[in-house]
Computed example of a mutant assay.
Amino acid sequence: MAHRPSRRELICEAALDLAAEGGNHALTHQAVDARLGLARGSTSYYYRTRHALVTAAVTHLTDRSRTAFRDHLPDRPPQSPSEAADLIVDQLVNLIHNRRRDVLARYALLPDAAKDDALRAGLASCLFSTPDAGALMGALGAADPDDAGRDLVSLLEGLAFDMTYGSRSADTGDRHTALHAVITRWLEALTVN
């Protein structure tokens, strides 16, 4: 049986849509109500403040990201930097192309986290998992898997931004091959014993 989203999930999805389409100022309780065709005040019944609404949307985004990541994992862990690069590039390209709305929403919500440590931590980890990256780096033989995992997430953050707004966003060539080369070189440098 197909999952029927709850009202809270629908509100979070609408919040992410609004942020992605119009920036963080587009995300209001009234805009979510209008987007979903709800009676005025419905969204504030579930999420009393804008902070609660943004926090719920970020938590929802994190859950979606973890599910998407795990749904695309291979049956066995990568055995080499090249295999790991295949996995990473596939995940990154999926994020940029199929989950573009999530990336845009995350960037749009960053100003909300400027003075909110909890929200900043949520946004920092909503698209990429440092523990999963550390586990991957450990499986590849990195000397310090936790540090290597944090470095991998930093690399992926930069590539995601570059592919969304930076110089790679204008590339029309084979992104997969170019990214694979970059990530393989990086993984090989960190996993050479």
Rank of each mutant, 00 (worst) to 15 (best):
S42P: 02
L187D: 10
A15D: 08
R185V: 09
R70F: 13
R40Y: 13
E188G: 09
T184F: 12
L53N: 07
G122M: 08
A181N: 14
L119S: 00
V54I: 09
L53R: 06
R4T: 15
D132L: 08
D162V: 07
G134Y: 02
D147F: 09
L156A: 02
A26E: 02
L61N: 09
G149M: 03
P74N: 12
D75R: 14
H51G: 06
D63H: 09
H72C: 11
M163G: 13
A20I: 00
G141A: 06
V58R: 04
L179G: 02
M1H: 09
E9N: 09
R168V: 03
G173E: 14
S42K: 10
A181Q: 15
R106K: 08
D33N: 06
T62E: 09
V58Q: 04
I183S: 12
R4E: 15
A189F: 08
P131C: 06
A113P: 00
R7Q: 15
F69G: 05
P111T: 01
P5R: 05
D151R: 14
A39Q: 12
T49E: 11
A34W: 07
P111C: 00
R185C: 07
I88T: 15
T172E: 09
F128N: 05
I88K: 01
A85P: 04
G122H: 04
D174T: 07
G138S: 11
Y47N: 08
D75M: 13
G166R: 07
G37T: 08
T43I: 05
T43H: 01
D112E: 13
A105K: 05
G158W: 09
L27F: 00
L119N: 01
A57R: 08
T130A: 07
D116M: 00
T172H: 15
L119E: 03
R120Y: 02
R8K: 15
E83T: 10
E13M: 02
P145L: 11
S80Q: 02
T59R: 15
L119P: 04
Q30L: 10
H51Y: 08
V89D: 14
D151I: 05
A68H: 12
R185F: 11
M137T: 03
G166Y: 10
N98A: 07
R8P: 06
A14K: 03
Y47M: 09
A34E: 10
D144S: 11
M163C: 12
A105I: 04
H180N: 15
Y165I: 10
L38I: 03
F128S: 04
R168S: 11
Y165W: 11
A2K: 15
A143F: 09
L187E: 06
D102Y: 04
Q79R: 14
L156Q: 13
V32H: 10
D116G: 02
L18F: 09
L95W: 04
H60V: 01
H97F: 06
A142D: 07
F128A: 07
T67K: 13
V192I: 14
A139D: 05
T164A: 03
L119R: 04
I183G: 11
V153K: 01
T49W: 07
Q79W: 02
L152V: 12
T172C: 08
E9F: 03
D75K: 12
A170E: 15
V58K: 05
G173Q: 13
C12H: 12
L27S: 03
D33Q: 02
D147Y: 10
D71S: 13
I88F: 05
P81S: 06
P81N: 10
V103E: 03
A135F: 12
D146T: 08
